[in-house]
Nucleic acid binder design. Structure first.
Lengths: 242, 242
DNA sequence: CCAAAAGTGTTTGGAGTACACCCATGA
DNA sequence: TCATGGGTGTACTCCAAACACTTTTGG
């Protein structure tokens, strides 16, 4: 039993999801990766992240790295898992606490793209550094699972949206068509969404109603953890500079 | 931004659940706590745990502290959450990766009871050290939530059991009566359980069939994480010294 | 024969799915 | 007036809950 002070390093990484408009018409699920500039795995792509500062919470660290690599604010943020396998880093021992986040698609346009930060299709990634392929795979599974029983899809959208846009989120993420009529009823019954009264004009057909998210409802059922850090990012405090 | 090596300490704790026979006839959900022998919170009860050794996985550390405090092996073990609030420890900065575990009730009898290790009713705990009340609350929520959509109830029982015993696990944990007929169909349809052919004799009524768990089925739907540590503890390798 | 729990059968209501069908707008 | 998606109505299926009922043991 090693009695000396543990040399285990602690890091926080984040899997950031967004929907990017695609030439095919339907958007695609993408996430940003950063190129490693030193060993191990130099030159390979990895999840954004870094060490945990003494003066910040875990979720704050996740938000910070998210902001640093993408210049975006998360619209949804949740802890994914703590990875601590012995062999996940070749030389040192690192435990990574991983978060996953949703950012709005229209903002992802304005996001940073550079030599060392690029967005990849979530379902078609290169070989990543460390165990990050497994981590992304798990984050994808959680995203898809949670989308089906929780109401987080609006995290991909802006302040207001049509039900068709919201439905498209489901179709792209879950990779299956969703019946428009049943989807409308499902969403309306959940009470998670409120009509703004305005309509989206300029369409070549009947103008659809615009909706806003019902902020008075807890969307991610995390039980008692709602008191904690996870809930803080649920309030949509985006620059309402009117 | 603190550039020096982070001084954040990493610990692993475990919430251990068991069903203990009770004088009222119906068992009760209990968990072991350890009394703190030094500051902070000296004298108060806390979750079993400790620092992470360099040569062990996170789940190994959880199993180890579980073994050290109760002399038991977990029949189910799953990561709960990583807690890293700034103020959760008064003086130093500690990030705790918490696991939750199920142990068999008949084994919990043989478990350690001492001055500094005691079992408490899960729904009626004293004020614990650190943020451990919140942690237990969350673990309880996860246990109850997971029991309803996953098949982990046998983790409270021995090798073989009757459906009435299994049903009692649900009734005690979920704190509500369960219809025997529907429960039987539900369990049989899930395929998670296999009749042994033997019957439990000595009852004042019709002798019930004994069942064994179907080990060829993955019980905890953790998606891609099944490859990882979480799955290792699912194999029931208890002393089959025949 | 009786009590009590094991085990089976039957009914029903609600939720999700499939799909037919009107509505409102731009061109 | 037509094409297109917005939005509504309706029938059907499946599963879970409720509950009546039969079976098998010990006393």
């Amino acid at each position: 039993m090693s009695t000396e002070q543990s040399q285990v390093a602690l890091a926080v990484s984040t899997v950031i999801f967004a929907l990017r408009p695609h030439s095919s018409g339907t958007p695609e699920l993408v996430l940003p990766l950063v190129r490693r500039i030193r060993e191990p795995y130099q030159g390979q792509w990895a999840l954004p992240g870094g060490p945990l500062n003494l003066d910040e919470d875990l979720s704050q660290a996740a938000s910070r790295t998210l902001l640093e690599t993408t210049a975006l604010e998360p619209r949804y943020l949740e802890q994914l898992y703590a990875f601590g396998q012995l062999d996940r880093s070749p030389d040192d021992r690192v435990v990574s606490i991983v978060y996953w986040a949703l950012v709005a698609g229209d903002e992802a346009d304005r996001a940073i793209q550079s030599e060392n930060v690029q967005w990849f299709t979530a379902d078609d990634l290169p070989e990543l550094a460390f165990d990050h392929n497994l981590i992304v795979e798990y984050a994808l599974w959680r995203l898809r699972t949670k989308l089906e029983y929780s109401r987080i899809a609006h995290g991909f959208l802006g302040e207001t949206f049509t039900l068709a846009q919201l439905r498209e989120v489901y179709e792209v993420v879950l990779r299956k068509p969703v019946d428009p009529g049943n989807f409308r009823r499902m969403v309306e019954a959940s009470g998670t969404v409120v009509p703004t009264g305005e309509r989206l004009a300029g369409t070549p057909h009947r103008p659809p109603q615009l909706y806003r998210y019902n902020t008075s409802i807890d969307l991610s059922d995390n039980g008692p953890l709602s008191q904690l850090e996870a809930s803080r990012t649920l309030a949509f405090t985006r620059g309402e500079h009117s």
